[in-house]
């Protein structure tokens, strides 16, 4: 499968301090689904990705295909491959459609 690449025209940033807070909340059992940790600046608008989305985004550097991204995430999260794989598939499909991710 082709490698995934972030659209180079998109300016983005990992909000490190926020990410630390979200990771801590996650460790304490909190719901962090709606907590943004990566910001994307697109045409003057800001969009946010949550922890998992931000990690996928970070991994889309042109060196990995979708399966390899799943492999990487499984090292971070203790969940079934099928669950992570479904999340990655949905996320990648959405961002490909928006043009925020491209195939390298």
């Amino acid at each position: 499968m082709a490698v995934l690449l972030r659209n180079p025209d998109i300016v983005w940033r990992r909000e490190k301090r926020r990410e630390e807070q979200v990771l801590q909340e996650l460790e304490e059992g909190g719901d962090v689904e709606d907590r943004g940790t990566v910001i994307l600046l697109i045409s003057g608008m800001m969009h946010q990705l949550n922890l998992l989305g931000g990690m996928i985004w970070d991994l889309c550097d042109g060196s990995r295909d979708q399966e390899q991204i799943v492999d990487n995430l499984l090292e971070e999260f203790d969940v079934e491959r099928e669950i992570i794989s479904a999340d990655v598939t949905d996320f990648v499909a959405d961002l490909l459609k928006r043009g925020w991710l491209i195939y390298g």
Binding site: R13, E15, R18, I39
Partner: peptide, 9 residues
């Protein structure tokens, strides 16, 4: 600052 860890510009 909860949102932004630094300015954008």
């Amino acid at each position: 600052t909860e949102q932004f860890s630094a300015p954008l510009t």
